[in-house]
Design a binder for these strands. Structure first.
Lengths: 201, 201
DNA sequence: TATATACTGGACCGAGCGTTTCAGAAACTG
DNA sequence: CAGTTTCTGAAACGCTCGGTCCAGTATATA
């Protein structure tokens, strides 16, 4: 009866996501979004309602396709001891591939945390929820890695590894080498804590 | 012979700085800058050449009047052992005063690091230089605090404390409690390292 | 094949942007 | 007090912004 949609919604959202990631919410203009998605303005507004609607879809896509796959090993019921190191190393590898989105543009959500659009409370909550999710995942990873450490030490190291990951994302655009050092520091903190625990036996 | 300037440049730059801090470079419109500074558009352009020129002046003012006073104890020829803890505690106090600029708006330069304007290479360099300055200052503070620790451990902890300070600034707008935890983690890392060094005797 | 449905392209909207311009007011200097 | 210089206010610039609208077209169903 009705004509079917002539584009793949996921593909469109992914294209918009890339532009928002690179340019930020404010920096991605509607004409630029048209070009990136291949959609005309009316299709964008018909499908997503507004620029914000498209941004929200892009953020969800970012969480589902970029963030969570990387965090999956840390969110599993049983977490591998080395999973938290693998996470940090995976981030460093992404930063080292200088043409990767992570290297050129950091993290869509961390970029958003310091952008004007965050004054919209709903956006701020999404970003804060992301931080909590990251913290919980790293917390599991640290617990699996330092199974013998005192709880307060594990919490402290999980806070530190989470913060250092966030700092690395904030830095990678302007100082990629220093972003890598920041992640290396997180890794070293964990391995040093483990070495010390082993020595305590 | 010539008429003298009818306003105090420093006062004007300070007012602009506050607005840029709150709203970011892109978010601070020229009309809003007029209102904040009390200057008319022509005076702004006559004095600073462009919005970017005013922003650059605001950034310098931020470095000179906000950042460097806080870092001064860490940059002195002889650094007090506890100075790095005092720095972290001072940051936490500022974050706890929920009406302070730091609590509501984080750090002007870290906000800029993830903003579109950073694609201007000159702006990116200023932000990267700030990170280096912060890292060097914290490095001195860590060296003074952990005078007996191994050099590689001091470097690692200095990288960590620097990164965690940056993460706290990135987070404070959207998750102030977590920003405080991030700084607390930095502090605990340092004190734990010192306790452990003491125990080694 | 006829029809109904909704996707699509492109013109258009008002608003706000950063910047330029210029005439006139202000006030130091000689 | 006259002259010169510079600051200042206001208006207008061209442009881009996010968003709306509608006629035309494509297509799945009956």
């Amino acid at each position: 009866m009705a004509r079917t949609q002539g584009f793949d919604r996921d593909v469109v959202v992914r294209a918009a996501r890339t532009l928002f990631w690179r340019a930020g919410f404010e920096g991605a203009s509607v004409p630029a979004l048209e070009e990136a998605t291949g959609l005309s303005r009316s299709s964008i507004y018909n499908t997503f309602g507004s620029k914000r609607g498209l941004f929200d879809a892009a953020v969800q896509s970012y969480l589902d396709e970029v963030i969570r796959p990387r965090l999956r090993p840390l969110k599993a019921d049983v977490v591998a001891p080395e999973a938290v190191l693998t996470y940090l190393d995976g981030l460093r590898e992404a930063f080292a591939r200088t043409d990767s989105m992570s290297a050129t543009s950091g993290c869509l959500l961390i970029n958003t945390a310091t952008a004007p659009v965050v004054h919209d409370g709903e956006v701020a909550r999404v970003v804060a929820d992301y931080r909590d999710e990251l913290r919980a995942a790293i917390g599991s990873g640290v617990a699996a890695y330092l199974d013998a450490a005192a709880p307060e030490e594990r919490e402290r190291l999980a806070d530190a590894a989470t913060g250092l990951s966030i700092a690395a994302f904030a830095l990678v655009r302007i100082a990629p080498a220093e972003a890598d050092r920041t992640l290396a520091a997180a890794r070293d903190l964990l391995t040093a804590a483990r070495d010390q625990a082993a020595r305590a036996y």
